[in-house]
């Protein structure tokens, strides 16, 4: 099968592989510690670790967009900020 129409590039492959690894990692985590670890954090509503991953990914996307819109094309700092944000979400939300 020819997938050249999908126009794959190394950065986008790495991006999707990262997402896939995260999802597999969450699956393994759930297998080792079932139940999703629900808790009420600073947002004052119950979240499971799947919710926290979703909030982390969605928030990271907007951090990157805000960085591109307000600062510039170098997104490495936005990536670092997103990692800090994701750690914060998993600790506090």
């Amino acid at each position: 099968m020819n997938f050249s129409w999908m126009a794959w590039t190394l950065p986008t492959v790495l991006f999707f592989v990262t997402i896939l690894v995260l999802l597999i990692g969450m699956g393994v985590w759930e297998f080792l510690s079932p139940g999703g670890n629900p808790r009420v954090g600073i947002l004052r509503f119950e979240t499971t670790r799947g919710d926290r991953l979703f909030v982390s990914l969605l928030g990271s996307a907007f951090i990157h967009l805000a960085w591109l819109g307000l600062i510039g094309p170098n997104v490495w700092w936005a990536l670092a900020l997103s990692v800090v944000y994701a750690v914060g979400v998993f600790k506090l939300v």
Binding site: W5, A7, W8, T9, P11, T12, F15, F16
Partner: peptide, 8 residues
Amino acid sequence: MTVVNYSV
């Protein structure tokens, strides 16, 4: 995935 690829 294709849209992500096209966007860059």
